[in-house]
Design a protein around this nucleic acid. Structure first.
Lengths: 203, 203
DNA sequence: CGACGATACGGACCGCTGGTCCGCTTTGCA
DNA sequence: TGCAAAGCGGACCAGCGGTCCGTATCGTCG
């Protein structure tokens, strides 16, 4: 893979943009009052540079998101319990969802910007696909194959960024540990009935 | 309440706009390629009229949504079982969620447009508040007060418009009855463990 | 029935956004 | 040191939601 190395200035500017966007999103109230021009200005580059490096707004958001997600991804793919692959399914499902929730709590603005940018469904993002496929695989060992797909979606839906924002930041002021407990409780209830129940799904 | 009657032309135009918007949203692929100008043109009115009647884009969407929702709202507030208030809680919860799901299936584009218009969180919309408060009240009779609030949010999250769209229309082609069965199954699992489990939430 | 004030109409207009373009600068290799 | 090629950056563009105000319509009152 010759992977055409990018020039030094390009790489440096890319980093500058990422950093600037990071702080801007952290500082601002709502994600959509951070414009691309703002980011470019804060990074000290022109808009052309910004769009050349990331394609479009969604690309920038994704790059930021993936960067933050990286450590967690590793922990899931090859880390120790309770996130890693060696964990027994019934412990791993709650651990996974707790990790998602904590991530969204720690990166509220960013997750919000990414999920609610109407450009394309959040369900087509590859990070969602990753979460879903991992969770689905683990659920399959508990519930059987029939329901694991939908159940994975439904559980992940309980950690949607705007819901987290609504509960933690907006209307009802639930503390971090409170939300984690509630989610854990909910997950526990879903997993409580062990045997797969009849499902009429086919084709 | 003297309720200042609106002029005839105003009322007629309002109806024309609602109808035009309805068909436009039904026809188009993605909700955001229906612009306000499109709606105005299709209704045969000027943009000024449109904005005067509905305030802004979100207002138009809400008006459409509420109109469609009206019969269901009535069925819930004062209808016969399984939606009405006389239904026993354990039957009413699945019925409510099934109703939400069917509604979103029947009004995919509209629900999508309303939920993903980044302008303000879907959790602040009063129709969501209505669903949530009803569901919460019913859940409270099954799970106790501690968890009903979050559980109501989590269950409603499983019927989010973009998830429904993703499952029914986009990536995975799940049939209507299939989704209803899966959701019913999920709800069943959540309700299976009857007694409220310990929750560390307080205050 | 005619006239007049209030109300609503409608499309030119605005501000702002994401995204493009191209003359100029920087880089890195020979 | 010279010279492509890669990259830069901000003027520029199209399209959006939303506003404004001169004009047409309504409905009421004499």
């Amino acid at each position: 893979m010759p992977e055409p190395r990018s020039r030094k200035d390009a790489a440096r500017n890319r980093e500058a943009v990422l950093e600037a966007a990071d702080t801007l999103f952290a500082r601002c109230e709502s994600p959509e009052d951070v414009t691309m021009a703002d980011v470019a200005a804060a990074a000290g580059v022109g808009k052309g540079t910004l769009f050349r490096a990331f394609g479009d707004r969604a690309g920038l958001l994704r790059a930021l998101y993936e960067a933050r997600l990286e450590p967690i991804r590793e922990a899931i793919e090859a880390g120790p319990p309770p996130l890693g692959p060696a964990t027994p399914p019934r412990d791993r499902v709650p651990a996974l969802l707790d990790a998602v929730l904590c991530f969204k709590l720690d990166n509220r603005r960013l997750a919000l910007a990414l999920e609610e940018d109407g450009t394309s469904s959040p369900y087509r993002a590859e990070h969602y696909e990753r979460w879903h496929s991992v969770l689905r695989a683990v659920l399959e060992q508990i519930l059987g194959p029939a329901d694991s797909d939908f159940t994975a979606h439904a559980l992940l839906a309980a950690t949607r960024a705007d819901l987290v924002e609504h509960l933690a930041g907006g209307g009802e002021h639930v503390a971090r540990e409170g939300m984690r407990a509630q989610l854990a409780n909910f997950v526990g209830r879903v997993l409580a009935s062990g045997a797969p129940q009849g499902s009429s799904v086919e084709g």
